[in-house]
Amino acid sequence: MSTSHVLLGLLAAGPRHGYELKRAHDERLPQAKPLAFGQVYATLGRLERDGLVEQSGQDRDGGPDRTSYVLTAAGRAHLDAWLSAVEPPAPYVTSALFAKVVVSLLASGERTTTGYLVAQRAAHTARLRELTAIKTDRDAGVGDVVAADYAIAHLDADLRWLQTTLLRVADLHHEVNQ
């Protein structure tokens, strides 16, 4: 995820200060890793340096001074270009799950790998149930449901891969023992 692009998108709705941006990010992207305040302010500094946002004022509102930022015309053009660019499919397999299975096969053998695959499948299935519950919750917002749909699709793909890999490991074990 591009934090800078997400912040530009949040600023497209109007001026906000860092605290509001962090809160909006965490509310609008409920299944994403929450942003740290330091990350928000560092990103705003880079966006300001690059001319994509500018300070629009300060308010105190009963606490420390808060600087509000607004999207510039260059920032809007940058955001629009990013939004219209098609994301290429990932060229490499970079999953920790995939790496663990391969290393387990190399270092520990079939029995340990099979046990790991079964345990991982159980963990994925439990998470699938949690996400399905989110989708049926009447209080869930559209962001929650869209995030759950996205995660469910990825978990489903992982579960299919785990099952295929379990079968391949069993076939490999059978070939070796003949």
Score class of each variant (00 low, 15 high):
111 R>A: 15
137 D>E: 12
46 R>I: 08
88 P>G: 11
106 L>Y: 08
29 L>P: 05
48 E>W: 15
38 G>A: 07
130 E>W: 09
139 D>S: 15
31 Q>L: 11
46 R>K: 08
7 L>N: 00
27 E>V: 12
120 Q>G: 03
113 T>H: 10
109 G>K: 02
77 A>I: 10
114 T>Q: 11
125 T>V: 15
76 R>I: 09
43 T>G: 04
47 L>Y: 00
65 D>R: 14
68 S>D: 10
48 E>C: 03
64 P>R: 12
101 V>A: 04
119 A>Y: 00
20 E>I: 06
50 D>H: 07
37 F>Q: 15
116 Y>H: 14
41 Y>K: 06
111 R>P: 06
122 A>L: 05
39 Q>M: 07
109 G>L: 07
100 K>N: 14
120 Q>R: 12
144 D>A: 13
79 L>T: 05
83 L>W: 07
38 G>K: 08
21 L>R: 01
41 Y>D: 13
63 G>W: 08
42 A>I: 10
10 L>W: 00
69 Y>T: 05
146 V>Q: 14
66 R>L: 02
148 A>H: 01
130 E>V: 10
69 Y>L: 02
130 E>A: 15
67 T>P: 03
95 S>M: 04
67 T>L: 08
82 W>P: 03
16 R>I: 07
72 T>A: 06
75 G>C: 03
58 Q>E: 15
86 V>C: 13
25 H>I: 07
79 L>M: 03
130 E>H: 13
6 V>T: 08
95 S>W: 05
8 L>Q: 02
59 D>L: 15
40 V>G: 00
78 H>R: 15
47 L>E: 04
98 F>P: 03
70 V>Y: 04
74 A>N: 13
125 T>R: 13
130 E>F: 02
137 D>C: 10
17 H>F: 11
38 G>L: 05
103 V>S: 12
10 L>C: 09
101 V>C: 00
87 E>S: 14
116 Y>C: 07
24 A>D: 06
90 A>L: 14
